[in-house]
């Protein structure tokens, strides 16, 4: 990311289990970036950290009512803002 993150922004891997954020931008590149877009992880999307695998990584996130597992290297590249009011069930 070239631009400095807005205040209150963090990366997806920092999202604690059960918390919800809103995607700001994706730092992932190439085929992986495209796949994430295709899966519906686009800027502005609500994303909730739902379950963590037994060994800590990957973590599955709820996006547009689907559950997508991402490894830490991927979630580290996704900028989010914490969304305190909104929750997706």
């Amino acid at each position: 990311m070239n631009t400095s993150p807005p205040i209150g922004a963090t990366t997806l891997d920092q999202l604690s289990l059960g918390a919800t954020g809103r995607v700001l931008a994706l730092g992932n590149q190439g085929a992986e970036r495209r796949r994430l877009f295709d899966l519906g992880i686009t800027p502005g999307t609500l994303i909730q950290s739902e379950v963590r695998s037994p060994l800590g990584d990957p973590v599955a996130y709820r996006v547009r009512n689907t559950l997508i597992a991402l490894r830490r290297e991927q979630s580290q590249m996704i900028m989010i803002t914490l969304d305190l009011e909104e929750t997706i069930v």
Binding site: G40, V63, R64, N65, T66
Partner: peptide, 9 residues
């Protein structure tokens, strides 16, 4: 139907 929004893509 349970994941319609993503399917609509």
């Amino acid at each position: 139907a349970t994941r319609l929004e993503r399917n609509l893509n």
